[in-house]
Amino acid sequence: MENFNRSFFKEQGIHGDLLFPMKIYPTHLDKNSPTMCLHWHDEMELIHVHSGSGNLSINLKNYPIKTGDLIIIPPQCIHSGKTHISSCLDYDAIVFHLDMLRSAAMDSVTMDFITPLIGGELTLPIVLHEDSLHYASIRHTLISIVESYQIRSPVYQLEIKASLFQLFALLYGHGFIQKVPVTENIHTVRIEKIKIAIQYILEHYNEDLPIQTLANLLQYSEYHFIRFFKEQTGFTCIHYINTVRLQNACELLLSTSLSVTEIALEVGFQNISYFIRTFKAKYNCTPNAYRKKYVSST
């Protein structure tokens, strides 16, 4: 399996492939890379925390997580994560599209259980702790999915689909998934507004990006937008823009021979000294040292 620090935002690609849209991402967060950036995707995500502790934000609500926790992130939920100070966080993220469980014949399983999940019509549990009811059976099912994915027997895809159906049978059967429509409310409106701002940042991070431009998108004053973004995400808009730019800079440091100055300009930093200072504050090393460390280790 591919091991990396996840840094995607609104994901456009396919996890796995068209015929089997799922992939497992072993993820490690530590003091050198302590955050999983704010992002969302069309797929459901299941997380099994192997070690460490931290916080997970899902649809702008904060959830403390620790070793052993199981997390269910429904499609289209905006989420991010970070470790606690002086702690690492290791987990498997199982990302899959619910379409892979739908029947082309539109049978009762598809209509009653899968389609409502895809449509966001149902409420799901977010975090299951080790003392949660039925935790052991749900954890066992997640472990089975990971093992099948790792071993890759000739029938591993069949095993994974069977385990996913078993997972939802457990969640529905034990009442974790409630057949209650999720009504529109102020919180969901705020989430959609944040998505608009984030998507614009992702598409224009390498350009001059005044806060007023983002404020205009949401029809806010600059002052109101700054407060709104910080209140909803927990960090400033400038911090988020810099995070996006820095993570793209890291990719260029490892995948190209561009100079540090060229990379800084490529990702939207106009002041090279500010780029180096911001990079060092986040990664505890200079861009050149980062390149030397990680290129030499591959």
Rank of each mutant, 00 (worst) to 15 (best):
L258Q: 15
M36F: 08
I226P: 01
I276Q: 14
S144T: 14
E147D: 13
E251G: 10
S273P: 00
K179H: 14
A289L: 10
D69E: 03
T243A: 13
Y283T: 04
I78R: 02
R139C: 05
D107F: 05
L217Q: 14
S221P: 03
G173V: 04
E11D: 06
D90F: 09
A162M: 09
P210G: 02
Q166I: 04
H48A: 00
P154W: 06
S7M: 11
L254E: 15
F225E: 04
I263G: 12
K82I: 05
L142P: 07
E2R: 15
C285D: 01
G68E: 00
S257W: 03
F96S: 02
F269P: 11
F229Q: 07
V146Y: 10
L29I: 05
R277I: 03
K161V: 10
K282L: 10
R245L: 13
Y200D: 05
S33C: 10
A169I: 02
N206M: 04
N62C: 03
P75M: 01
I194W: 09
T67G: 00
R245H: 14
I85S: 11
E121F: 14
C285T: 08
S86M: 08
L171K: 03
V182F: 06
S86F: 09
G119V: 04
H140A: 14
E43Y: 03
I73E: 05
R102P: 08
I58H: 01
P210A: 02
V95R: 11
S86C: 02
N62G: 00
M22Y: 03
L158I: 13
Q150I: 11
L218P: 09
V127Y: 05
L170F: 12
F279N: 01
N3D: 09
S297C: 12
F165H: 09
K179L: 08
H140G: 04
F165C: 09
A289I: 07
F4I: 13
I78A: 00
F4G: 10
L46A: 02
V155F: 15
I201A: 02
P125Y: 05
G173N: 06
H174R: 02
L98T: 12
H28V: 04
H140R: 06
K161L: 12
L218V: 13
F168W: 02
L117E: 12
L89P: 03
I211T: 10
S163W: 08
S255G: 07
T115K: 12
I177D: 06
I272L: 04
L171M: 03
S297R: 15
H97R: 12
I143H: 10
I160D: 06
P210T: 00
A264F: 11
I47E: 06
